[in-house]
């Protein structure tokens, strides 16, 4: 008797309970490893802590210290430079995609090879560009020497180093945007393009008025991945400059790593405060993306 009522309960409520059973493992993992740690980090940022000993509550002191720290401003400035210059990957990706959107023999292979830089890890990209920039045996200093007469060692010069690292990052990022746009171009309605051609639209005006509006979904995704990629930049800096010369290529993510995670980094509270600032900046963008995706969901 007992058993049959249980079975009846399950039968009646199966539809309501099933989704939670399906989601439980994923949700638990995600809460434990992603959502909860965000709040823990915010908590840690109010303490002074070396990672092992007891924590001392210091209120907003870590944040006040940040405001007096030149490295913080350098990092913040570099984050802005990264963000602005990284956005170049979007028009560059579109340009490459337009260049490759043809149907000549072997074009598929060309497209794959142009996409190549994105598949390689950033560590390898960083090594490749370090070599490319290296004074003496890199190609670029020779080229610069040819034009200006002085072989500039880009990564050793605090004026240029950040730009050198960003250029390395733009290489795979442009490839990524290119593939998004190639897919977008593939799905453009040929009727509209033909109709516009009948109306004598061509070249730039065609691109601006007919093509780009139809590429909006691709542009949105390109924007999301580029902004997030720019603010997450870490690998290239770690491999190419280790934050130097003189800390001039630090960004918030790398600054945080130095403070809390590297071999000598034991300032957990301070690092957490840096991470919270980075998180707050990203939250602005994440919210914008989510709002847009949510309105799409509602319209669907």
């Amino acid at each position: 008797m007992q058993k049959s009522t249980q079975a009846g309960f399950w039968k009646k409520n199966q539809r309501a309970l099933a989704p939670w059973f399906f989601m439980a493992p994923g949700i638990i993992m995600f809460l434990v490893y992603v959502i909860y740690p965000i709040f823990q980090s915010i908590g840690i940022s109010f303490y002074e802590w070396d990672g092992l000993g007891p924590k001392t509550y210091v209120g907003l002191q870590n944040y006040r210290d940040l405001l007096d720290d030149d490295s913080f401003y350098t990092s913040l400035k570099n984050n802005v430079i990264w963000l602005v210059l990284y956005l170049l990957a979007i028009p560059a990706g579109l340009a490459v995609a337009l260049f490759l959107n043809q149907t000549v023999a072997g074009i598929r292979l060309y497209k794959s090879l142009f996409f190549f830089p994105f598949v390689i890890s950033q560590v390898v990209v960083g090594l490749i560009f370090t070599w490319f920039y290296a004074p003496g045996f890199g190609i670029l200093p020779h080229v610069i020497n040819f034009f200006t007469g002085t072989p500039t060692a880009i990564l050793a010069d605090d004026k240029y180093a950040t730009y050198g690292v960003i250029a390395a990052g733009l290489w795979p990022q442009t490839a990524y945007c290119m593939i998004l746009y190639l897919t977008g171009l593939n799905n453009i309605s040929p009727d509209q393009v033909e109709a516009a051609r009948m109306d004598n639209a061509k070249g730039w005006s065609m691109l601006w008025h007919i093509i780009i509006p139809q590429l909006r979904p691709a542009t949105f995704i390109a924007l999301v991945v580029t902004v997030i990629g720019a603010l997450r930049s870490f690998d290239l800096i770690s491999v190419m400059t280790v934050g130097g010369p003189f800390g001039s290529t630090r960004v918030l993510s790398y600054f945080m790593y130095e403070q809390s995670l590297s071999e000598y980094g034991t300032a957990m509270g301070y690092g957490a405060a840096i991470a919270v600032v980075l998180f707050a900046i990203m939250l602005v963008f994440i919210s914008l993306f989510i709002v847009r995706m949510l309105s799409q969901e509602r319209n669907a």
Binding site: P19, I27, Y36, V224, L231, G271, E297
Partner: peptide, 28 residues
């Protein structure tokens, strides 16, 4: 399934996917 909180759970996964690694690193 249509259930209360469906979109909330979905967007928790989406948003979490975008956070900077550094804010997870110390606790993880």
């Amino acid at each position: 399934y249509k259930f209360k909180g469906n979109l909330a759970v979905f967007f928790m996964f989406v948003a979490g996917n975008f956070v900077p690694f550094q804010i997870l690193a110390i606790p993880v």
